[in-house]
Design a protein around this nucleic acid. Sequence first.
DNA 1: TGCTTATTGATAATAAAATCGCAGTATTGG
DNA 2: CCAATACTGCGATTTTATTATCAATAAGCA
Lengths: 128, 128
Amino acid sequence: MTERNTRQKTAVATVLAEARTPLTPRDIQVRARTIVATISQATVYRILKGLLEKQDVTTVQLPGEPPLYEQAGKTHHHFFRCRRCKQMYEVQGCDNLIDRLVPKGFTLEDHDVFLFGLCRTCTGEQSA
Amino acid sequence: MTERNTRQKTAVATVLAEARTPLTPRDIQVRARTIVATISQATVYRILKGLLEKQDVTTVQLPGEPPLYEQAGKTHHHFFRCRRCKQMYEVQGCDNLIDRLVPKGFTLEDHDVFLFGLCRTCTGEQSA
DNA sequence: TGCTTATTGATAATAAAATCGCAGTATTGG
DNA sequence: CCAATACTGCGATTTTATTATCAATAAGCA
C-alpha cells in the first residue's frame, strides 16, 4: 500500500518546522511527545530515515558528535556554537571565502565550516 | 618509577612523524606493526592517550567520523578530503576569511573548515 | 646482572547510537 | 464501516569505538 500519514510523522514534521536550531533524535522525541505522548525513539529514527531519503531533512555533523537534524531547503549556512550556553547560531556568507582555499586543480564539491566560542549574550556575561 | 621508553611508544611516534596525513588508531597500529610486529590496538590507544595529554599529538575530527590523529606543532591548517581516493590534503590560509563570518559581539575561540571533492589526480582521471 | 614495576597483549567489558523483531495499533482505500 | 497492512512501541540486539582487567613481559636503576 502507499505511505500513511500518522500522528507521529506529523509530530516530527511539526517539531522540525518549529525548531530554531538543529536537533538530536532525542530532542525531537522530547518535543514530539508534547504532541504525541507515546512516540518512541525507534519511531523517531524511522521517521527521520524516511525524511532523509525524501530529502525533507538534512543532517548537521558537528565534529566528534552524533548528527543533528534540521529541515531541508534552508539557504546555505553554517553554525557558530556557543561553548557556554551550547546554542547554535546560523552563519551565512562563506562561499567566496571558501573558494580561495581550494588548491589549484582540485574540484570542490562540498564544504563545512564550524565556529566555536561565545555568543553575544555569553560574551557579555563572561566578565560578570 | 618514571615513564619508560618502550619500543611500542617509539614505533607510534615514528609512525606519526612519518605520516603525511592524519591517521586512525587502526592505521597507526597497522603501520606500527612494521616496526613492532605484535603491538596491540589497546596499546595504540593507551599511547595516543598519553601523547594527547602531553599535547604531542592532536585529533582531527571529521564530521560524522571517529577522530584521526596527527603530530602536534604543525602550523594551523585544515583539510581537503578527496571523495574518490580518500586522501586528505592540508589547506592553509583561512584566518582572515573566517573572521568575517563571526557575528558582531560574538567571541570566536576556535573554528574548523573541511573541504570535500576531488583532488587534482582524481579530477584528471574523472573524465577517463 | 637482578629486581621493581611500568607497560604490554589479549580479551572482556563498556558506552553510545542506531537498528531489528514482533505483537499490537491505527490509517486508508474501497 | 472494515479489512488489509503500514506503522508503532518496546525491548533486545547490533555496531563501532574505546576502556578495563590481569597475567605476562620488559624497561632501566642499583
